[in-house]
């Protein structure tokens, strides 16, 4: 009677939405993380201007992620959010402060340093909290009858702290390669300089996480080590992307470092998905168990097919309107 496996289609849609969010908000959070370390206040102006036109649209993908999960996989929404209750609050508080910092920093004189901190602090907290979510997902949740029954701080473990730091480093790398693309002169030179150390940091943390994960979860270790499977292609691709970042930075390419960093994120993300598939609320529930009613999934899917192409079109148009290098002294005012 049910023509398509809608839950499967929705898993792809949500998966797409999440990686869109990670890549798009990732670089502007990354710019925030790097903010305090910039060579000068002028450079900070340029950094902010480089993401100012787009960060708001980027964040709307997060809202879509939340609403989309509620619509398609309500169990994910209603287990993750209670389980991560305190973490979600920190994430939202971080996003609020960095959001308003964009606006007020340029109006302030004496209080300017406060907004610098609001922007950097908010971005850092938000990025760390998102990394913790990833770690908590790998770790799994204590549930009974589809309801979270664990404690308030179960999500906070050494492992999730490490994944938090991992995403922090990853977003910083996205930020620095974005700056290579969008800036020039001294600031760009600085971005080139910090990219390689950031890359090393990312590789080290991702490496530790990869070694640790099989111990956290049996399914993962079985999947990766029981027999030599094709999924080993993913870490190989990740390393190739890393190599490409390193080489393109040495060659002073402008666009390639950013593109390769996105590649690094995508392959890592796919690695995470194949390790966990098809569990969306580990260790117990698969995507089919977490799905909403067939009817509801269908009702939204029909609209989505119509509207999302239009959304993508005008989003692309905004990026096009604000294309090119951001220079000092132009931009905000």
């Amino acid at each position: 009677m049910q023509l398509f496996d809608l839950a499967l289609i929705w898993a792809f849609i949500i998966g797409f939405g999440i990686i869109m969010y990670v890549l798009m908000d990732g670089f502007d959070l990354g710019v925030g993380i790097l903010f305090p370390f910039a060579p000068s206040e002028d450079d900070r102006d340029v950094m902010m201007n480089s993401v100012a036109p787009v960060w708001d649209g980027n964040e709307t993908w997060l809202v879509l992620g939340g609403a989309g999960l509620l619509a398609a996989f309500p169990m994910v929404y209603t287990i993750f959010l209670p389980a991560l209750y305190i973490g979600v609050f920190l994430l939202l508080a971080g996003l609020i402060f960095r959001g308003v910092a964009f606006e007020f920093r340029f109006k302030a004189r004496t209080s300017r340093y406060l907004w610098n901190w609001a922007f950097a602090g908010g971005s850092t907290v938000a990025a760390f909290a998102q990394g913790v979510v990833v770690g908590a997902y790998i770790q799994g949740f204590e549930t009974a009858n589809g309801v979270y029954v664990g404690g308030a701080l179960d999500w906070l473990t050494p492992f999730t702290v490490l994944t938090g730091l991992g995403l922090l480093a990853g977003y910083a790398l996205l930020g620095s390669t974005w700056l290579i693309l969008k800036t020039e002169g001294r600031l760009q030179e600085w971005a080139y300089r910090i990219t390689t150390p950031l890359l090393v940091a990312v590789l080290v943390v991702f490496g530790i996480i990869s070694i640790w994960t099989p111990f956290v979860d049996e399914l993962v270790s079985e999947r990766w080590f029981s027999h030599l499977s094709v999924i080993w292609i993913l870490p190989v691709l990740t390393l190739l992307c890393a190599l490409q970042i390193w080489r393109s930075v040495r060659r002073r390419d402008e666009g390639l470092p950013f593109v390769s960093t996105m590649g690094l994120f995508i392959t890592t993300y796919l690695g995470l998905i194949v390790s966990r598939w098809p569990y969306v609320v580990p260790p117990e529930y698969t995507l089919w168990e977490a799905a909403s009613a067939y009817d509801s999934q269908l009702f939204l899917l029909l609209g989505l097919l119509f509207v999302v192409p239009i959304v993508l079109a005008y989003t692309a148009w905004t990026y096009w309107v604000f294309r090119g290098k951001v220079r000092a002294g132009e931009g905000y005012h």
Partner: peptide, 27 residues
Amino acid sequence: FQFGTNWSNFAQASANFLGPILSYEVI
């Protein structure tokens, strides 16, 4: 995120309706 953090039983029960409606609002 309020529906999930503080009213998760309600979110679970009403997701079939509220989920699509709120998603339509976003898109």
